[in-house]
Each structure stands twice: as structure tokens, then as C-alpha cells.
Simulated scan of single mutants.
Amino acid sequence: MKDAPTVYLDHAATTPMTDVAIEALTARLREVGNASSLHASGRRARRIVEESRETIAQALNCRPGEVVFTSGGTEADNLAVKGLHWSRRATDPRRLRFLASAVEHHAVLDPLEWLEEHEGAAVNLLPVDSLGRLSVDALRAAVELEPASVAAITVMWANNEVGTLQPIDEVVALAAEHGIPVHTDAVQAIGSVPVDFAASGVDALSVSGHKVGGPQGVGALVVRREVDLTALLHGGGQERDVRSGTLDVPAIAGFAAAVELAVKQQADHAARLTVLRDRLVVAVRREVPDVVLNGDLDNRLPGNVHLGFPGCEGDSLLMLLDARGIECSTGSACSAGVPQPSHVLLAMGRNPEDARSSLRFSLGHTSTDADIEAVAAAIAPCVERARAARA
């Protein structure tokens, strides 16, 4: 008997590579050349890197020189957070405070915690409302408390768990009043919602290849040329002397192809996923009437469905669905074998029990109506078993 096809609904974790990205990457795998070498092979490799840089710059509306290639979104976030803190503090020792939303990805929260423990930074995590949206009033109060002490502000473009879009325009306008640089983690946003670097007014923006249909292990920090960043890595002085290391030419080629396609198809992609997302919500509500939809119902990522199932442990429900070939995720972490509630849901005011009962279904370019039907058929019996196991 042939196994049923896997229903993959975890695109926010990683999405399958697109054909154009696979072709761009594999076309370069057999070619030799270090992009820092001066001979012909090195110059060919450098040309691929620079053409890829121009492709990404055109897609995101930035200057090519503002694209700094990294190993992915986590490195880009670390470079932005630590690099801004160190450079700003070097020019003015009073700049010890770093402001961030309480629902940032751990790729932002963990380096902030490290700066607090090891570098004397003062991290202010700002509250969000019940939809996961940053309180701009709280941000204003934090800034105006002592503007000269703020090194930088970081607020993600879109939340990776509940999908809520953040008020980046308001954050930038407030920061501009006091000359404070703004970084945004846009890893989940590229290809899902319009992202225009120049028009946004942010100073630095993180991108990851495998979230947009490109390869894993490559990404970029888009950072304005006039912004001073202290490097994390030192060596050959590549990437404006901000990110040393031999560049992965095939991965960069695949990354650029994926970004170009994702941005080109963004509007159509979002429209299609919005329809599928809404069908999924309706289907699950029909089967499990007391399900709770988390996040902003209107201003959210088109492919994000974050649901709470009262009386269930999210981890148990995830494994029951996985046994039926349906792959999704929880927002929780596991420490010493004990499920921990999502920091995002706790910041939104959920109690720990409710926070542990949630699952994230994230749709992508391979999602179909059949995926929605599979979830609809499986969800009620899986919820019933998960509740029985907890009783």
C-alpha cells in the first residue's frame, strides 16, 4: 500500500526550494573559484556574487552595496544587534539601552540577553497587545525617558509565530525624531507582504534564504551604507569588512534567484495563500468549534494560521497529526524534556496552559486545497485523543 503524501504545513520553519533557486545553485556547484581571488576563476565567481547582490538589491529596493551576505537570518540578526550596540556605544558611552518588542525571534532576543550579561547593555522589552502588536505608546515612553541612552531599536516586520504585522512605519518615524537607528527582522515578511527597504526608512533588515524558497545556510543583512556596524567576524575583510569569510557562491546565486521570484510573485502568492488560510480556519472551526485563532485577524501574514486548542498539549497534538502525515509546529520550546509555553503568547497575555495548547500551520508555495481537506479530516479525532490523554 502506497503511503499517503505528506501534508507539509510548516513553511515558516523552512519552505521547499523553488525550481529557479535549485537551477541557479546547481549550475555553480561544479565551478571553481574564490570570489576574493584575482585570477580568472576568482573574477567569474566575483561576477556571480555581484550580479546576485544587484538582483537582491533591485528586489528589495536598496543599493547593491547595502546587501551584506551572511550565513542566514540568525547571523544577520546577531550582526545587526551586536554590531549596532558596539558601534553606537563606542561613539557615546551613554548608549547602553537597546529597545525591542517582547515577541522578537530568539535570534534577536538571545543576542540581546548576551549583551546584557556580558557587555553591560540595558535591554528594554516592550509590551504587545492581545493580538501580538507592539505598543507604540510604550515605545515612545521608553525612548523619551532618555533618548540619548538608546543605542538602537529592533522590531520584527512580521511575527514568526502568530503572523501579526508590526507597525514598522510608526517605529521608524518615532526613532527618526531622536536619530536612533532601527533594525527589523524581515525573515518572515519577504515574499509574503510588500517589503521596500528604502521606503521603509529602517537602517538594517534581516533576510534568510530558506524562508523564501532558497537554500539553507545563506542570508543577508541589508544595512544602509552610512550606518556604522562593528563586525562579528574578522578575517579577510569581505562584505565591507563587516562580515569576513569566503563567500558561498552557489548558495548566493540560489538565494538571489529565490528572492527575485518571491518578490515578483508576492501579490499573487499572498492572494492565493489568503484564500487557503481562510479555508483552513473555517474547516478547523467546523470540526473543533472552541478553537481559538491567535494573532491579528486582519494585519497578518497571508500564510499563517495560529490556533489554540483548549484542553490539549500542543506537543501531543502535533505528534498525533504527524502520525497522520500532517506536519506543523508548536510555538513552544522544550527544556530538559519539559514543554515551555511560547514567549510570544505569554507576552500577548495568554496563560501558560493556553500558550502550550497552540499549533502553527504555515502555508507556502506548495500548499493546496488537498492539504486543507487533510487537516479538516484529521483534526477532530486528533484533538479528541489529545484531550483524552491529558484528562
Results as ranks from 00 to 15, higher is better:
H118I: 02
I372T: 03
G245N: 12
H106P: 01
I180L: 07
H234E: 15
S130C: 13
P167K: 03
F69G: 05
G311C: 08
L9P: 00
G214N: 02
R94P: 00
L112C: 15
G219D: 05
E327K: 13
D228C: 07
A220V: 06
G303I: 04
A141V: 12
T15L: 00
D185V: 02
P5L: 11
L345G: 08
E161V: 01
A21C: 09
S192R: 12
Q340N: 09
G214A: 09
P302E: 07
E287P: 01
A176G: 03
A80T: 04
D298N: 04
L60C: 06
P215G: 10
V123Q: 08
R97G: 09
R53P: 00
A141F: 08
A231T: 07
R95A: 13
S101Q: 10
N34C: 07
E104D: 11
E260R: 12
V383Q: 06
A148T: 13
L125G: 02
L318M: 15
A158M: 02
H39Y: 15
L321S: 09
V195T: 12
V218A: 13
V259W: 06
V223T: 14
D110K: 13
G295Y: 01
D354L: 10
T6H: 04
W157P: 01
L99C: 05
L126K: 12
M17W: 11
D322F: 09
F361T: 00
A102R: 03
D369N: 12
A152D: 06
A122R: 14
Q266T: 07
T26Q: 14
V344G: 00
S316K: 06
L321T: 07
V7C: 14
R44V: 02
V32T: 10
T230V: 15
V227S: 11
G65V: 09
L25A: 04
V291W: 05
M348A: 07
D19N: 10
A258S: 09
R277V: 02
S87M: 05
H365V: 04
I153M: 11
N78L: 10
N124T: 14
S335A: 10
V193C: 01
L38G: 03
G303A: 08
T274I: 01
A267I: 08
R279C: 10
L321E: 04
Q266Y: 05
I180T: 08
L99D: 10
N304P: 00
G364H: 01
I180F: 08
R240A: 15
A148D: 14
P194G: 13
E146D: 15
L221I: 08
N299L: 14
